[in-house]
Structures are given as structure tokens and as C-alpha cells.
Design a protein around this nucleic acid. Structure first.
Lengths: 346, 346
DNA sequence: TTGTAGGCGTTATCAA
DNA sequence: TTGATAACGCCTACAA
């Protein structure tokens, strides 16, 4: 690799002049600029970002800490974030935490000081630990859980999204709407479940429908997967409790429910309507295709990077602790609306 | 952040002595070492890797270039690679190419010179471009396509895997076995399709079965998704060509096929057996659960990092161009074996 | 066993 | 508009 020095010699100018041209600074004559540009091209010079970072103390590398990459929500979130980071001229270093507080902390201890910023989807972190993280490196959380510690955060419209889902069901004439995925442990890391249940209650209230505890299904583990969804739905069916719709708090739960409902010989949506949350690809390709709430992944990525950028550049005097809630979108498909769309369609 | 200088002052020793302690070099008295360690702890000193890298020219950062992250195969591969990289003390910087040769090259131009190594799943790269990449930075390809340019490579057992799949079908008594996902364009970037078709022929030959072109289904696009699988299968069914098994070249195709077969009122596996390739989570959770070939992701990650590590450290005198083919595993589930396993089981 | 001098490639300072 | 010189934090070579 050629260095700035090589370019300077070749162009017959000083080091600093090359630096000026490279960084687009003013006060360089057009003629000099051309000479330098030519030399840069000839030598295929590329600035050494390591050296640049050392000198400026600014780092164009941000960390992205996620529990997993193999779950559709996280991998598509990661994709969006990487695209957005590129727009900001930032490079993304991905770390997996597996949802373990110790791993989340270790990562920050290890890499934090050498990162320009950090986007984290915290799982196990306590309030105190969250503060430690945010003190080590400019941080933005992507999380449904609110932290006491003041950290900038981007969240989904959990409550409003489910509320709209229930409203949609009601508008189609369904009245005995089950909720799938509730949590009654009250543990803070299950905030998404709590907020979505709140939204479910809101939706019922909007419609003047009663809240029936027997229609609210908890699932065995905090993992919202198809098996849990399927098992939960089977319990409801076997319990003989009448219902005509299911609002699941995640697409995976909804897909499991879909399976159990169909296995029980019930037609979807003629006899039972089903909807999910997340709008994953699986929802689009399911049979029937699944109505779902799209949480605005692109916006989440955009907002998260905007907040982080502010912090990194110090271009904001507001205290950390800002909250942005992304807009959601209700994506209606066959599982609530019937056979209008073709299988696999949007 | 405190620097080595701060530590040196605090401990009352020279900069170099601190450096020795930090890097675990010999020739430091136990007493001095303790003094320095104490100062390091008090100041919470962490070596600045930027400065270190600038000086040593060695970088513990590797790039991982993938076309997408939102497809299950790539996200789970990325997970495995990150786990393995951590074991090697390497940090992973992920880049998305979207399968575009220009993006693949740009990424290498931009970041290549400042990376310790690169793992790439090339898609659009020509032979000449592959050489450019490998010259810029120590590179290992994860790819089914063989490049003329000598670059180390890790691949799946495409041919052997499908051959085993066909053998499995034959052992269960199926004789009219369709292949789904063939490519007759011969384009090099579709090497996986070619090799898997070879494996299909091998399997038939092993069993003394004839190769019947009417049972070999091409899909419309190079994208192996459910819709393509479903459409392909429908063509076969509507064509009235008798068949009793389907070997799909990807799980997504198999899942689409499963759907089309069931929609046509055929029972799986009683009337038609179905199998895929990749062993994604979707295969495990499908209904019926899908028999598939597990391509050995963990081993692919392990071998790729082993090869890359060799190159980065120069601990190998072999020319680049080594090839490692990962072991595969046939995962038999309900879609070929019947209702022995519970839905959602392994 | 310990320390000094110099330099990695870039940007910042200040003078010309 | 340009350039000489110092500095970022660390490691290597060599000297003490």
C-alpha cells in the first residue's frame, strides 16, 4: 500500500496538501488538487483508516450486539442496520451475546473502548449494567424494555400494533379473540409480552369487548417459537373454550397456532382468524399467508443510527435517555381476510 | 482512556517495561511486574488496539462477506463463523454484497488492505476478479464454485449429499424420484445446482434406475425459494407425469414442493416422499418435518478459519488453492420416513 | 533486567 | 494557498 508520503512526493507537494485534498478541505488551488488527484489515482492510494483513527481519536467502526443471528427478526434487523451504517460511512462489527448478561458485558469491556459507538439489543442486562455499558461507549439500545439508566433507545410500537390487530379482527366481525404469548411473571426482560398484552386489552376496550382470562394464553418458555404456539393453541382447543380469532404476539407463535388450528379441522379464516407480529418472511409464505404487524425495521435501523450518530459526534446536548418508537404497519393477508390473495403473495 | 505512559508514570517505570508486562514478554522481574499490574488495574488501562495495529501492521480483524444475512443458510453460517473466530481471538466485520460482483470488489478495495483476512461467499466474482481479491488480502472462499484463480476454498458435499438422499429414497422403495432445482444454463455461479444434479444422477446409477429428463425440474430463477419450489412441483403434477418422491436441491424448494403436493391431495410420505438440502430450522419445524442433508455448517466454519489462520500467519507453505469439503449428514424425518417422530421433533 | 530513540500513517498547529 | 514539524499510542531495535 502506498502512503500519503508517496503521493506527496509523486505530486511534488507536501504531506499536508495531500491530506487536504483527501479530506476535501478548502484552501487548495484547483491546479494542485488535480496534480494530487492524479498521483492518488496512479498509486492507487487509499487512506489508512487505522492511522487516521489513531490521530483523530474518532473511530468509524460501530459494534452491533445481538443475541442471535439465526432468528429471522435479528438477521433482517442486522441487514437493515448494515445498510444504514454504510450510508453514515460506518463499518459494522457484529457480536453475538446469546442473551447472556455476562457476554453482553464482556463484549463491551473487550471491544467497547475501541469502538466509535455501540448498537445493542440487550437481554440479560440489569439497569446498573446498562449504565456501565453506556458509560464505556456511546450506546443506543434497540429494546422493548425501558431501562432506569438513561440510555437512548429505539423500540417497536408493541402496544399500538397489537391494539390495531385486535381492531382489525373486530372490524371483520370476530368477537372471541384469543391472545397467544402472554407473560405473567412480570420479569422486565419480557417487556415485549407485557406491552403487547396491554395492546390486546386496549383493543378489546376500544370495541367494548370483555377481557376474558381464559382466552389469554401464556406460553411455556420465553422463546416464541412454533412449537410453543402450537402447544398453546392445542390447550385452548382441547379446553373446549369457544374462540373465533387468535392474536399471537409473534409470527412464530402464529404459525404454530395456524398449524394446530388446521390440524383440529378448523378452517382459516372462515372459522378461526389468525394474526401474528413481526411480519417475517415466513408469514408471507405461510399457507394461508399470515396477517401480521410489520414493526418498521427499516425505520428502527434509521433511527438507531441517527441517535448513535448524534452521540458519537456530540451533536446533541440532550441527556441520553431519548426514546424513539418506530411506526408500525398492519399487513393484512389471507389468514384474516380469506382467499383474496394468492398463496405466497404479499 | 489512560495510556501506557500514564501506567508507566504511575508505576515508576519506563514505557517499554509496561509494554513488556502487557504483552507477557519475558525479562521482567516479578516485583516490577506486580507494580505494573497494580498500576494497570488502578487506571483501568486497556491497550489501544488502533495504535498497536498501526505499529505492528497486524490486525486481529477479519472480514466476512456474504450476499445476504436474512436467508437462513447465511445467518446460521455467520453465527458459526463468529463463534469460531472468537476461539481464534479474531473479531469479525460483516459486509453484505447482495451477490453483486461490483459490491464484492468494492468491499475488498475499501476494507481489504486494512483487514487481517477475509472470508467470502463469492457470487458474482469472475476468475480474474477472484484473483484480485486474494491478492489484496489473505482470503478463503466459502463457495460451491471452483475458481481457476488459486484461492483456498471450503465447500459442501453437494454431490455426495444428494447421492445419499437418492439412496435413502431408493432404500425405502421409491423408484420414480423427481429432482427439483436443476440448472441447465451452465453458468458457473450456479455450480451448486450442477453438482447436486450430478449427485442425483449418481444416486440413480447406484440403484440401477434410469435418468428420466421429465422428472428433472428446473426452477425459474436462481433463487431457491418456496414459491419456485411450489410452482415447479405444480408443473410436474399437472403434467400428469407419475412420480413417488422428490429430491429438492434446497429446503426452501422442498417446503414449497411439500405445500404443492399436499394441496394436490397427495399424502406425504405415503404417496410422495419429499426431501431437501441444507437442514434449516424451517425443515425441522415443517409439517411433516422434512428430511434433509445437513451440510456441516460448524465444520465449514471451523475449516474456513483454520485455512484463513494459516494464511494470515504464513504458517503454511502450500500455494493457495487448497480445497476442503465438509462432511454432510443425512437427517431423516417424517417427510420420507412417515409419522414416527412427533411434529416439530428432530 | 531495564530504558531510550525512532517510526508506523495520518491529522493538527502554526508559520511562511 | 502551502508546508515544516509535532503528535496520536504503541512496538521494535538497540543500548545500558
Amino acid at each position: 500500500m502506498s502512503t500519503m508520503n508517496d503521493v506527496a512526493q509523486r505530486a511534488g507537494v507536501s504531506l499536508k496538501t495531500v491530506s487536504r485534498v483527501v479530506n476535501g478541505e478548502p484552501n487548495v488551488s484547483e491546479q494542485t488538487r488535480r496534480k494530487v488527484d492524479a498521483a492518488i489515482a496512479e498509486l492507487d492510494f487509499r487512506p489508512n483508516s487505522v492511522a487516521r483513527n489513531l490521530r483523530t481519536g474518532r473511530i468509524d467502526l460501530i459494534g452491533l450486539a445481538l443475541p442471535y443471528l439465526s432468528q429471522p427478526y435479528f438477521s433482517s434487523l442486522a441487514e437493515e442496520i448494515m445498510r444504514e451504517a454504510e450510508r453514515h460511512g460506518l463499518t459494522v462489527l457484529i457480536e453475538l451475546t446469546e442473551g447472556d448478561a455476562e457476554a453482553e458485558l464482556a463484549l463491551v469491556r473487550e471491544h467497547g473502548p475501541h469502538l466509535g459507538g455501540l448498537l445493542m439489543y440487550p437481554v440479560g442486562l440489569s439497569d446498573a449494567q446498562a449504565l456501565t455499558v453506556a458509560r464505556t461507549v456511546p450506546t443506543v439500545f434497540i429494546s422493548e424494555r425501558a431501562y432506569d439508566a438513561h440510555v437512548d433507545r429505539v423500540a417497536m410500537a408493541n402496544r399500538e400494533g397489537v391494539r390495531a390487530l385486535v381492531g382489525h379482527m373486530v372490524s371483520l366481525g370476530y368477537t372471541r379473540i384469543a391472545a397467544l404469548g402472554a407473560d405473567h411473571t412480570g420479569r422486565p426482560e419480557r417487556a415485549a409480552a407485557h406491552l403487547r398484552l396491554d395492546g390486546y386489552r386496549d383493543g378489546l376496550r376500544d370495541a367494548g369487548l370483555p377481557y376474558l382470562p381464559e382466552l389469554v394464553l401464556e406460553v411455556g418458555t420465553p422463546h416464541w417459537n412454533r412449537q410453543e404456539g402450537s402447544a398453546g393453541m392445542r390447550r385452548l382447543i382441547e379446553g373446549g373454550i369457544p374462540f373465533d380469532a387468535v392474536v399471537a404476539f409473534a409470527d412464530a407463535l402464529a404459525l404454530g397456532a395456524l398449524h394446530a388450528v388446521q390440524e383440529a379441522g378448523l378452517r382459516v379464516p372462515a372459522e378461526v382468524a389468525v394474526a401474528g407480529f413481526d411480519d417475517t418472511d415466513d408469514a408471507r409464505y405461510a399457507h394461508p399467508s399470515l396477517t401480521s404487524v410489520a414493526p418498521g425495521r427499516a425505520q428502527i435501523a434509521r433511527e438507531a443510527l441517527a441517535l448513535l450518530n448524534d452521540r458519537m459526534n456530540g451533536t446533541v446536548d440532550q441527556e441520553p435517555g431519548r426514546l424513539v418508537v418506530a411506526d408500525f404497519q398492519l399487513t393484512v393477508r389471507e389468514s384474516t381476510l380469506g382467499g383474496m390473495a394468492a398463496w405466497g403473495g404479499a
